[in-house]
Amino acid sequence: MSVEKLELFEVFVRSKRGLDHKHTGSLHAEDQEQALEYARDVYTRRSEGVSIWVVKSNDICASQEDDSESFFDPADDKPYRHATHYPLPKEVTNM
């Protein structure tokens, strides 16, 4: 079996109960089951996790570098979208 015939998976590990799954890396495997086991062996062997997600890298739809301008730049000049843009009345103390 050669790596070329295997699929690429992305691995997400939850390090503690209550926290989010975080992307920790990728690996090669033949199918989801095997990917889950290799994720366990490669990314959680030093007690890094309590739960694992794997997803085929191909199934992830990602924004592209070319999209940056149209996606993210327009947000730069809209400070009113941040709560900190608005002055708080003195009467509000806990917020």
């Binding site: 079996m1 050669s2 062997r45």
Partner: peptide
């Protein structure tokens, strides 16, 4: 091992 992931798994 036949490939990296299996190599690590066998080592475990």
């Amino acid at each position: 091992g036949p490939f990296l992931e299996e190599d690590i798994a066998l080592g475990n």
